[in-house]
């Protein structure tokens, strides 16, 4: 570590405010995209999606340039141990916030399984709910027949999802082997195992795409299929989005590994991407148990 001084960008940075413009553009574009897609009578035009994509592009470019700056500072020796600690702690709290984000959806899942569905079937203080409003409804989980009579099928755990679990668990192992290689300074091994991890990540996403396709075309399991479909796609979809982000993150750190940016004591970004990967892995285990299996 080159310096004792805690690094603070002296001339400020243009990226945060530009990123805010990007977020705003994305949000506004997304809202108009939605309006123009679902309500074309009141919202003629089709510019919403372009604004949305422009916003994403601004965000992407900004994040790249922002990271470029921090990478230069890091490689230039401006970061000290204390700043490394700030980054690590910041990343941990970020992951904690992600845990809580998934927590909201898991909470919805448990509330639905344990309370809503039995109540609609007349349990607890809801006998009259069942008798007066949904007399034909049967309480069950997975809910394959909604109170208003929409039918669907439950996703079986021991086919594709089990395979996907194996894929994701293996990727965690390969990444850990990579981590050891990083600490021991064996770059070739690190590159090999990180590359393998990225491949496994992409396989996972591909298998999930196959699973979704199967659900939509053959099982009638869609977002419209009532609360079971809603929760299924919300939880697995959000997880899939996180796997995508994690894979991109790993690809970025892989290129940095190839460029020789990391050493055993200066590897925050690499560790962050690894933590993130382990986090999505753990979330998947919960998903597999709570959504597919039980």
């Amino acid at each position: 570590m080159a310096t004792d001084k805690y690094y603070i960008p002296e001339h400020g940075s243009p990226w945060p405010v530009v990123a805010s413009v990007g977020l705003f553009t994305t949000a506004f574009g997304a809202a108009e995209f939605i309006h123009q897609s679902f309500n074309p009578d009141s919202y003629p035009g089709a510019w919403g999606k372009f604004v949305f994509m422009a916003g994403l592009a601004i965000l992407l470019v900004t994040v790249t340039l922002w990271w470029r700056d921090t990478i230069r500072e890091s490689v230039g020796g401006l970061h000290n141990r204390v700043l490394g600690g700030s980054y690590r702690q910041g990343m941990m709290w970020f992951i904690f916030s992600e845990v809580m984000f998934f927590g909201a959806f898991f909470g919805a899942l448990f509330y639905t399984r344990w309370l809503i569905v039995p109540w609609l079937g007349g349990a607890g203080n809801n006998a009259m709910t069942h008798e007066l409003l949904w007399p034909n409804f049967q309480s069950m989980w997975p809910l394959v027949m909604t109170p208003d009579g929409r039918a669907t099928q439950a996703m079986e755990a021991w086919g594709l999802p089990a395979l996907n679990t194996a894929v994701l668990l293996t990727s965690s192992v390969t990444l850990t082997i990579g981590h050891h290689a990083l600490i021991e300074g064996k770059r070739g091994r690190l590159i090999f195992f990180q590359f393998l991890t990225v491949l496994l990540g992409i396989s996972f996403l591909s298998l999930q795409a196959v699973e979704y396709h199967h659900a939509y075309t053959e099982m009638g399991l869609t977002l419209h299929a009532g609360i079971y479909g809603s929760l299924f796609f919300m939880l697995t979809g959000f997880h899939g989005a996180h796997v995508t982000i994690g894979t991109i993150f790993l690809i970025i750190t892989l290129t940095r590994v190839i460029r020789g940016h990391f050493s055993a004591d200066n590897c925050f970004a690499w560790e962050a991407s690894a933590w993130y990967w382990h986090f999505v892995d753990v979330v998947w285990l919960f998903l597999f148990v709570c959504v597919y299996w039980l």
Partner: peptide
């Protein structure tokens, strides 16, 4: 704050993407 983000996300899904989180007819509440 992430839980609030989850809540508004479910609102958005119910509004436009056909989910039933808050609709008893689909098994929500």
């Amino acid at each position: 704050m992430p839980v609030l983000a989850g809540a508004v996300t479910m609102v958005l899904m119910d509004r436009h993407f056909g989910t039933s989180f808050f609709d008893a007819a689909g098994g929500g509440d």
